[in-house]
């Protein structure tokens, strides 16, 4: 099974390259090698200047996202044996500005994550703000699937709507927003509604669904966003007939206690 494999890496060195270009490397192949291992081999044996991000090697830190043959993947969770003996093309995550080689500028993504208020918000009249709040398994199950995000950005590289219009809040941020809206301990839905209701909130999504396919943690952002559309429609009608927004995570409380 041992042989060699050709890996093409997209290079971009801002101080000398006018635009990105492809460089091929012939590597020693072993079936247990991940794409991240291949990048290490290139750095160790061919070009110590190759720039790429990585940390945990076990699909939890979310640093090593890149395009493998045009598909957003984690380098540590993608194995050469699934491509061998074909050559593999590695590029930086799509839709983000390239900083250098495989490193992209994630600032816009990180700003959006922070902007959806991804933390428990309690109402001002909360009389016992610091007491523990128990949840039933059913209440936990409502948001747990949306709480597995590792902020790797693969879903943004998968989302053509974000690529076409980067004002769109995008999959991970809106899924995170949905996660807090569905948490029975949270009362901050009204504060998050303006983000959802905007043209660049849930309405920027056309349900391509690729975000959910590429997510390495099994989060389903497409489901989260489109459930968010129903929340937004209800809020639209409430607004039309002059009702204030539903302040509590209303359906969370109802359904959880049922």
């Amino acid at each position: 099974m041992n042989g060699t494999i050709v890996i093409e890496v997209q290079r971009y060195r801002p101080e000398q390259d006018p635009h990105p270009w492809w460089q091929a490397f012939e590597l020693d192949y072993r079936p247990e090698m991940s794409v991240l291992d291949a990048l290490h081999q290139i750095r160790d044996r061919h070009d110590s200047g190759l720039a790429y991000r990585w940390s945990c090697r076990m699909a939890i830190c979310g640093s090593c996202g890149l395009m493998v043959d045009g598909v957003p993947r984690l380098g540590c969770k993608t194995f050469l044996r699934d491509y061998y003996p074909d050559r593999i093309r590695l590029g930086p995550l799509a839709h983000f500005p390239i900083e250098r080689d495989l490193i992209v500028d994630l600032r816009d993504f990180l700003d959006k994550l922070a902007a959806v208020k991804p933390y428990l918000i309690r109402a001002a009249q909360d009389e016992r703000p610091s007491e523990p709040r128990r949840q039933t398994p059913a209440q936990l199950a409502r948001f747990l699937p949306f709480a597995q995000c590792i902020s790797c950005g693969l879903c943004y590289a998968a989302c053509p709507e974000y690529g076409l219009n980067n004002r769109f809040f995008g999959p991970a941020a809106l899924a995170l927003l949905h996660r807090y809206n569905r948490d029975s301990r949270d009362q901050g839905r009204a504060e998050r509604l303006p983000t959802m209701n905007a043209e660049d909130g849930v309405w920027g999504c056309t349900f391509v669904g690729y975000c959910s396919q590429v997510c390495p943690k099994g989060v389903d952002p497409a489901a989260a966003i489109n459930q968010g559309k129903i929340v937004s429609v209800i809020d639209y009608v409430r607004h039309l007939v002059g009702l204030s927004p539903a302040t509590l995570g209303q359906d969370a409380t109802q359904e959880g206690e049922r």
């Binding site: 801002p14 990105p20 500005p97 076409l164 690729y210």
Partner: peptide
């Protein structure tokens, strides 16, 4: 700053590159 971020263009043929996107366009 020596930064010179490269922003890749998104051609209107973007959906031809990936079978998932071709099926999406067919659906639309």
């Amino acid at each position: 700053s020596a930064r010179r971020p490269y922003i890749r263009p998104m051609p209107r043929t973007w959906w031809l590159r990936n079978p998932v996107f071709r099926r999406y366009m067919l659906r639309e």
